[in-house]
Amino acid sequence: MLRVGGARLLDDRDRWGVRSILEADPVAACMVAARVEVAGLDPWRLGGELWAVGARLDGLCFSGANLVPLRGGRSALRCFADRARRHGRTCSSVVGRAELVLPMWEQLAEHWAPAREVRADQPLMVLAGPPAVPPDPWVRQVRMDELDRYLPAAVAMFTEEVGVDPRAGDGGAGYRARVAELVAAGRAFARFEDGQVVFKAEIGALSAKVGQIQGVWVHPARRGEGLGTIGTAALVEPLARMGRIASLYVNAFNHPARAAYAKVGFTQIASFATILF
């Protein structure tokens, strides 16, 4: 085990200890748990590293495309920030429980380039069981031969939500590949009308216990019709059939989305925070 700045790099020998921690907080840890369940802790297969502080894994943090603190007090978060600072920023965001992300960001802010945006309050919501409203019968899984029709809606959602065009830098090849993965896995859903996407969403992470819904989007010309509510319900239903808890997180200022999710039956259990670069 490599020790740098008080934090150590974990490997597959630590897999069961890590899994027990992830299982204790299944909703907040869904993004990382989904990876660990499939890939273990080997960084190459995992697509990132898991760092720990303390012999009993008193602190735990994932470092990959996103930096995700999962557990730890202020001293552990300081150790993770030290290690992240030494490595240099390679992540596009710091995301997770607000009570972990915000203190960690305090340690990183003066050393990393200014954040493009700090979203300090993002309700983390869950729904165990079927939706409280009938799902949209026209929302279905997207087929691979529909990728080119689905992709413009995915780009529009990402640009609107994150504030940058996901095609920047490589002409969209990387983003197209990520969307294609979700489509191929049967985790991208849409309502098509005359060949155009009017609603879309994805199950972005799927662990043994939780499915995290992401990328909920309604075509601007169709907003206010309730498509977001019944469309989201159409993703909750298959998750309920699989025995998974449905989860998502939303910006606190997005009152229409929060109202729609409440109608579906979601309730808040915690708050996330995201630091965007």
Rank of each mutant, 00 (worst) to 15 (best):
G6C: 11
L10A: 11
R13Y: 04
R15W: 10
R15H: 08
G17T: 13
R19L: 15
E23C: 04
A28K: 02
A29F: 06
D42P: 00
P43M: 12
V53G: 03
A55P: 09
R56V: 08
G59M: 12
C61Q: 09
A65R: 13
R71Y: 05
R71I: 10
L77R: 09
L77P: 01
F80R: 12
A81N: 07
R83I: 02
T90P: 04
V95C: 05
L108W: 11
E117V: 01
A120F: 03
D121R: 15
L124V: 14
M125F: 08
P130I: 03
P131N: 09
P135V: 06
R140H: 06
V142W: 02
D145A: 07
L147K: 05
Y150D: 02
P152M: 08
E160L: 09
V162C: 02
G163D: 04
G163A: 08
V164K: 10
R167L: 07
Y175P: 00
F189R: 01
I203Y: 03
A205H: 12
S207E: 06
V210K: 01
Q214G: 00
W217D: 00
H219N: 05
H219P: 07
R222P: 04
T229E: 15
I230L: 15
V236N: 09
A240K: 01
A246S: 15
S247N: 09
L248T: 02
V250A: 11
H255I: 04
G265W: 13
G265E: 14
Q268D: 06
I269L: 06
A270W: 05
I275P: 01
